[in-house]
Design a protein around this nucleic acid. Structure first.
Lengths: 341, 341
DNA sequence: TTGTATGCGTTATCAT
DNA sequence: ATGATAACGCATACAA
């Protein structure tokens, strides 16, 4: 005796003895008066049939799908997942569903992702992609739909942008180390390529060093996943400089680099906070468990995701105006790895 | 001079000088002969206009959306994300897009998630949920669409099921510890409640102990996130038993528990492989970095995700037959935490 | 083989 | 205030 087929607007109309148009109006334009008795009848029918409009049909007709396309460069990245989580929740709460497209670090598929998502009439995009490469989207590849960029800017695409306040975060990290007596700093980042967040952090690191010269010296090392020898060598060189009476510390550009550095320290038999100080961007759950605990810059990932979704939804509701930038503050989490002398 | 509006089948038909039906046939039923010249004209028009059918319209008309609904209990869980990654990739490769719904551990929203997804006409479901609670879906809540369960079975819902081979994995872990000379085993799991995978692992642990009695003794402890004292006490009790000349080891039911145990060990000032041996389910990236390295049972998460998606897509292609079970083998990764005497 | 007409479930534009 | 009807973009019986 079950109704496996969902009730349609026609069913409701028939049961209420009115036209489909009336039912539609009841649902969408409650403000406009409809005679109370008719409204009551429609309401009853809707309740009885447990009627819910088909989002697909709505999308086809009215243009809006209540779908948001989320493109992420690499879902393996815990940062991306953390952001995704906040964004998805906010979308859900606002009645939007998320369509996910993972690029798997295939930088050239960005355009493909946008197009696939646009095919499903998504109302807007949240983009956490590299912002470079062959598949790079120009602003009008978005099919006229609004987008918000997360963590990484795209050259020439001026849309809303949400990210960590990289300069402030880097300054907090550097300041903390300098205060702790560290004088030789090495910033280790993934290859910058064109990725805006990496460049911003590296630039901010340079600014911090410049501001503390000549007492403090700094260097930058680009680490790739496949050359642990180079990383070890860089750490040894840093340590050698420390030997001349200047304490040395490493700054890691993200959690992936932090992991590499931790592995290198294990290989070298060194301890965080002893041979080398350490502060890393991102605050993974395992940071407290490595050696004396890793000091970190915790990103407000959840807030970033929520802000991105909120930003987009505001645009979908018609908010006009120039592109906005939301730069959220990071939080310095002090643990043993950056212990002062 | 750009065309911001996507070409429709009508545009193609007009340009080719044929009817929409002919275009549709050209796209969907290439096998049926259409006169070569007409086919050529349609093909040219399609290419020229860069025409792509609207999946939404197709879904509305033809019923199929090429959308797959993915419901996950908690996207914070790295296991879920790892599975999601494999599944999403396989779906993409098969031309399906993934709609994501995260329950955020709100066990009662499962039904809501299914309904929301079904509203968008998803062709099928991949479910990595708890399988209990008020919102539990019965088999016909799926609106007649196929589903595949991942990691957790649902009582009374017989659909395809993909998961780690829990008994074999537990046996490998226990066997390894017993061989290494460990005699007092403690299995620490999240509260089992009704979750099938937790129950299976606990049961398998019991079987392993039984098979090794009386030489080996085992106990089970349910750990919640908010009572570290209880966990510490359990570890102390275990260690006390070890003192009587029987080496003791902990088995952790998943990565979350592993993290809790590692914190506890740090609090107690104990070292893995010394005071207590250790093997944990799941192989997080940081496992090598905790103490002498944590021995683990690595789950083939990517393969599980791929298998789940493949399973579902086969059903979508019409595969009939009784529900299938895919039990994938785990891999014992030996590190320092389970060093023999 | 190809074209015409209809339906999928809604919303919106007209009348009434 | 309400109802008929035409889109929306596509697929498919049916007619030719």
């Amino acid at each position: 005796m079950q109704r496996p087929v969902k009730a349609t607007i026609a069913d409701v109309a028939r049961m209420a003895g009115v036209s489909k148009a009336t039912v539609s109006r009841f649902l969408n334009h409650r403000e406009r008066l409809l005679s109370p008795d008719i409204a009551a009848r429609v309401e009853a029918a809707v309740a009885q049939l447990a009627y819910t409009p088909s989002p697909m049909a709505q999308a086809l007709s009215h243009g809006r799908s209540r779908l948001i396309g989320l493109v992420v460069a690499d879902i393996t990245n815990p940062y991306s997942v953390a952001v995704l989580r906040g964004a998805e929740k906010t979308c859900q709460d606002a009645g939007y569903l998320v369509m996910l497209f993972n690029l798997g670090n295939d930088i050239d598929r960005e355009r493909e992702a946008i197009d696939a998502l646009a095919g499903y009439q998504v109302d807007g995009f949240i983009l956490n992609t590299l912002g470079r490469g062959a598949g790079l989207v120009d602003v009008d590849a978005l099919h006229g739909k609004p987008a918000v960029l997360v963590d990484r800017r795209h050259p020439g695409m001026h849309t809303d942008f949400v990210s960590l306040d990289n300069p402030a975060a880097m300054q907090a990290a550097c300041g903390h180390l300098v205060e702790g007596g560290y004088r030789e700093l090495l910033y280790i980042t993934e290859p910058q390529k064109g990725v805006s967040s990496r460049r911003e952090r590296t630039a901010a690191f340079g600014d911090c060093i410049a501001a503390n010269e000549p007492g403090v010296a700094g260097d930058v090392f680009e680490s790739t996943g496949d050359d642990s020898e180079a990383l070890d060598a860089a750490l040894r060189a840093l340590h050698k400089r420390a030997k001349r009476g200047r304490r040395a510390a490493v700054l890691a550009g993200n959690a992936v680099v932090t992991l590499r550095v931790a592995s290198a320290m294990a290989r070298l038999g060194w301890r965080f906070g002893e041979e080398l100080g350490f502060v890393g961007f991102d605050d993974p759950e395992w940071a407290p468990l490595i050696g004396p605990g890793l000091s970190t810059i915790a990103q407000p990932t959840d807030a970033i995701g929520r802000a991105a979704a909120t930003c987009l939804i505001e645009r979908l509701r018609g908010l006009e105006g120039p592109p906005r930038q939301l730069l959220l503050p990071g939080e310095l989490v002090v643990r043993g790895s950056s212990a002062p002398a």
